[in-house]
């Protein structure tokens, strides 16, 4: 097969659908990073919370047959875990990276343990009794395959992501709550002297970011797929964090960063059958993020140097 045919086979319009489904879990994980970054906390625990979200999503859905309940439990659990993290971080001064690292490890091994004790199986868990998050199909598009592939067949949470991102953006940049929250992250002393409860804001940000990660987990196991696999988060929490860096903690830009990740992942998946080394494609978003991050810092440095200069009048 020559190169052009492969390109033709890879870049079809169904790639858009793939890209979006691949991006959504990353976007949710990214919102976790974004919210905590706004109070100047780098929360790397998304990975661990996602794993718990995945597992409990499947568990509750399997037991009760209600995906709504399953999503709620996952979100609640995410909030609980991050509330615990906030306690450890704010009250006992535990290093946030140590916390994140431990939560991630507990997430991986803890869910494996629960899988083994509750479902008496290991590796993965599939069952007909797991009720997935429903998919939204537009029957009037059935006759137009292109539009159908572009707009139909997304799960409920995939549509939900758009309002969530916009809501978070609005809350952060247009609301009282967000103004106060951001002031905590940008200049803590300014916030203190304005009578803002700094620790309360940090707690709120962490809990909300935990909710996002919990939702990401539930979506991953019930919306994106309909099963539980060990380690199924597969680095999406970290990708979300990378995308957050890419977008400078602004939810809208960060979400675009996530789409880039989703795109490169789906292209990489499509290249695999053709024997083309896909590792470089998977690498690109990470490398790009590091470059964007460095470039933004260097640009800020140059700008500061200019404003500091004594030479201009």
């Amino acid at each position: 097969m020559d190169f052009m045919t492969i390109i033709g086979n890879v870049f079809t319009y169904s790639l858009v659908h793939d890209m979006i489904t691949a991006s959504v879990p990353i976007i949710l994980a990214c919102m976790c990073a974004v919210i905590s970054r706004q109070v100047n906390i780098i929360n790397i625990a998304a990975e661990g919370i996602i794993m718990f979200g995945c597992f409990f999503g499947v568990l509750v859905s399997y037991m009760t047959g209600s995906w709504v309940l399953a999503v709620l439990v996952s979100v609640g659990l995410g909030m609980l875990i991050s509330a615990f993290m906030a306690l450890a971080y704010l009250k006992y001064n535990v290093n946030i990276f140590v916390l994140g690292l431990c939560v991630n490890m507990i997430g991986t091994s803890g869910t494996r343990f629960l899988l083994q004790t509750i479902f008496k199986t290991s590796g993965n868990f599939v069952s007909d009794k797991i009720v997935p998050i429903p998919r939204v199909n537009f029957s009037f598009l059935d006759n137009i395959p292109v539009l159908k592939s572009l707009f139909s067949g997304y799960s409920f949470t995939e549509w939900l992501v758009i309002p969530i991102v916009i809501f978070i953006w609005f809350m952060l940049y247009k609301s009282v709550w967000g103004l106060r929250l951001r002031s905590v992250g940008l200049n803590e002393m300014a916030a203190v002297t304005s009578g803002i409860d700094v620790n309360g804001k940090k707690l709120a940000a962490l809990v909300l970011s935990g909710a996002c990660a919990g939702l990401a987990g539930a979506h991953l196991s019930l919306g994106y797929s309909c099963l539980f696999i060990e380690n199924m988060s597969g680095g999406r929490g970290f990708m979300g964090m990378a995308a957050m860096q890419f977008g400078g903690a602004n939810p809208l830009w960060a979400a675009i960063g996530c789409v880039v990740f989703g795109f490169s992942n789906s292209v990489a998946n499509r290249l695999t059958p053709y024997g083309i080394p896909n590792q470089f494609v998977t690498m690109i978003p990470y490398v790009a993020t590091i470059i964007v991050l460095s470039a933004s810092v260097v640009l800020a440095m140059i700008k500061r140097r200019k404003s500091e200069s004594a030479l201009k009048a």
């Binding site: 009282v176 709550w177 200049n187 203190v192 803002i196």
Partner: peptide, 29 residues
């Protein structure tokens, strides 16, 4: 000075006691 450098003067002044739009349940500034 206890000012948030990245924010505007206006945002700095109102920070902590922001007036809100009517009907937004004290959410929108």
């Amino acid at each position: 000075f206890m000012l948030v450098k990245e924010m505007t003067v206006l945002e700095n002044i109102i920070l902590g006691s922001e007036p809100t739009k009517k009907g937004s349940r004290n959410v929108a500034i």
